[in-house]
Simulated assay, not measured.
Amino acid sequence: MYAIVESGGKQYKAEPGAVLKLEKLAGEPGDEILLDQVLLVADGEQVQVGRPVLEDKVVRGRIVEQARHKKVVIFKYKRRKDYHKKQGHRQYYTAVRIEGIEDRAAQS
C-alpha cells in the first residue's frame, strides 16, 4: 500500500515505514504529523485517485529530525570579463517516518 502526498509544493510517494525528507514543517522530533493532501492511494489492484485530493484519506507520520541538506554550490562565470561569483545554499528539511495511511473517519 502506498499514497502520493503533496507537501511544500512537491509530491512524494509515502509507504508505511519509509522516511521522507519533506520541506521544513513546524514541530519537534517525536511529534506526530498528519499529511492531508493525499492525491492517490493504491492498495494492490485497487487505486483511488483524487480530483484533486482524496478528502477521506490521511497519511500519519512522526517527525524523525529537523536538519539541512548538503550544500548546493552556485557558481556564476563570464569568460573574458573577470567575473565570477560563488554562492552556497543549504535547504532546511523535516524527516518524517510514515506510520500509516488511514481513513479520515478513524481520526475523529
Results as ranks from 00 to 15, higher is better:
residue 81 K to S: 02
residue 84 H to P: 02
residue 80 R to M: 08
residue 80 R to G: 08
residue 75 F to S: 11
residue 86 K to H: 10
residue 72 V to R: 15
residue 99 E to S: 03
residue 79 R to E: 11
residue 93 Y to A: 06
residue 70 K to I: 00
residue 73 V to L: 14
residue 70 K to C: 00
residue 78 K to S: 10
residue 93 Y to T: 04
residue 92 Y to F: 09
residue 76 K to Q: 08
residue 98 I to R: 04
residue 70 K to V: 05
residue 80 R to E: 14
residue 86 K to V: 07
residue 77 Y to T: 00
residue 99 E to Q: 10
residue 91 Q to C: 04
residue 75 F to Y: 15
residue 87 Q to N: 14
residue 89 H to V: 13
residue 77 Y to P: 03
residue 81 K to P: 01
residue 96 V to Q: 01
residue 76 K to H: 08
residue 92 Y to G: 06
residue 73 V to P: 05
residue 71 K to E: 14
residue 91 Q to R: 15
residue 85 K to S: 10
residue 83 Y to T: 06
residue 70 K to H: 11
residue 84 H to L: 06
residue 95 A to R: 04
residue 79 R to T: 06
residue 82 D to G: 12
residue 94 T to E: 07
residue 77 Y to V: 04
residue 100 G to P: 05
residue 98 I to C: 02
residue 93 Y to K: 09
residue 70 K to D: 14
residue 88 G to F: 05
residue 97 R to Y: 04
residue 77 Y to Q: 07
residue 99 E to K: 02
residue 98 I to P: 01
residue 98 I to Y: 03
residue 79 R to A: 12
residue 89 H to T: 03
residue 76 K to N: 07
residue 100 G to N: 05
residue 87 Q to I: 10
residue 78 K to N: 12
residue 95 A to V: 07
residue 83 Y to E: 05
residue 95 A to D: 05
residue 94 T to H: 00
residue 90 R to E: 10
residue 87 Q to C: 06
residue 75 F to D: 11
residue 91 Q to N: 11
residue 79 R to G: 12
residue 84 H to C: 04
residue 84 H to T: 07
residue 74 I to T: 12
residue 90 R to T: 10
residue 93 Y to I: 03
residue 97 R to F: 02
residue 73 V to T: 15
residue 96 V to N: 00
residue 92 Y to S: 13
residue 76 K to C: 02
residue 90 R to L: 08
residue 79 R to Q: 13
residue 87 Q to L: 15
residue 82 D to V: 10
residue 92 Y to M: 09
residue 82 D to L: 11
residue 77 Y to W: 13
residue 75 F to E: 09
residue 79 R to F: 06
residue 100 G to T: 03
residue 71 K to S: 11
residue 95 A to N: 04
residue 75 F to A: 10
residue 79 R to N: 12
residue 98 I to E: 03
residue 81 K to N: 09
residue 71 K to H: 05
residue 95 A to S: 13
residue 82 D to S: 15
residue 79 R to S: 13
residue 73 V to C: 07
residue 80 R to C: 03
residue 94 T to Y: 06
residue 74 I to S: 13
residue 76 K to I: 02
residue 90 R to W: 06
residue 76 K to F: 07
residue 81 K to E: 06
residue 76 K to P: 01
residue 89 H to G: 09
residue 85 K to V: 01
residue 95 A to H: 02
residue 74 I to W: 06
residue 91 Q to S: 13
residue 80 R to V: 07
residue 83 Y to N: 08
residue 93 Y to N: 05
residue 73 V to S: 09
residue 86 K to T: 11
residue 88 G to D: 12
residue 83 Y to W: 10
residue 75 F to K: 11
residue 85 K to H: 14
residue 85 K to E: 13
residue 88 G to A: 11
residue 79 R to W: 08
residue 87 Q to G: 13
residue 74 I to C: 00
residue 80 R to S: 14
residue 99 E to D: 14
residue 84 H to R: 15
residue 75 F to Q: 09
residue 88 G to W: 10
residue 73 V to K: 13
residue 85 K to Q: 14
residue 99 E to G: 07
residue 97 R to K: 13
residue 73 V to I: 15
residue 75 F to M: 10
residue 72 V to E: 15
residue 86 K to R: 15
residue 80 R to A: 12
residue 100 G to I: 02
residue 82 D to Y: 11
residue 81 K to A: 06
residue 97 R to P: 02
residue 93 Y to H: 09
residue 82 D to T: 11
residue 90 R to D: 07
residue 97 R to S: 02
residue 70 K to F: 00
residue 89 H to M: 11
residue 79 R to L: 04
residue 95 A to I: 04
residue 83 Y to G: 05
